[in-house]
Amino acid sequence: MIWKPNVTVAAIIEQSGKFLLVEEAQNGVGLRLNQPAGHLEAGETLCDACSREVLEETGYTFLPDALTGIYHWRAKRNGTTYLRFTYIGSITGHDPHRKLDEGIVRAAWFTLEEIQEKQPMHRSPMVLQSIEDYLAGKRYPLDLLKSGAL
């Protein structure tokens, strides 16, 4: 059997001291909070995947500026291993009427304190850890990651 981690992307989006999170319905677990995030699809760059996921889950157009961290996590619930690339960047537009991905209940802005209070609802420990890394000033250039034929 060949094993491989699930490659995912996520976005830390802050405006006026609040962070954009999604509230999502997770089978068998109920509502969970997460950054706009999802899986890398065939043929995509990591940056393109992040922009696509933000749009699909929030209706916001997102332009990655830097990488804030790469996270390796194994979910206890199902044993799945994730390799998550988390970006920071800027919002360049919003379509409030866009239909959001299946399972996304809503996208909403939360203060750090609200996020900390809702920690039991976090989809994974990466939610708060990546925000803390962002607030600590962790930034890595996008050219750290190479795509395409080398």
Rank of each mutant, 00 (worst) to 15 (best):
E56T: 05
A136Q: 08
G38C: 03
W73Y: 15
G28L: 00
F85A: 06
I2Y: 10
P96S: 02
P96L: 02
V7R: 09
L40G: 08
D48I: 03
E14I: 09
G69M: 09
R74G: 03
R32G: 00
E102K: 03
E56I: 04
C50M: 05
R106N: 01
S130K: 04
Y87F: 15
H122T: 07
A107L: 07
V127E: 03
A75D: 15
T58S: 11
P96F: 02
A11F: 09
E23W: 02
D143Y: 13
T92E: 11
G17N: 09
V105R: 02
S147P: 07
W109L: 13
G38R: 01
A25R: 03
Q35N: 08
N34M: 07
I115Q: 07
G38M: 03
I88T: 14
Q26A: 02
E24T: 02
I2D: 13
L55R: 10
I12A: 12
P120G: 01
S124V: 04
G17P: 11
G30Y: 01
A37G: 06
A75H: 02
A136T: 03
R98N: 01
A108C: 11
W73F: 12
R32D: 00
A149L: 15
N34A: 11
P5W: 02
P5V: 04
F110N: 06
P141K: 04
D133R: 06
S16I: 06
T68L: 14
Y82N: 06
V127H: 04
G28S: 00
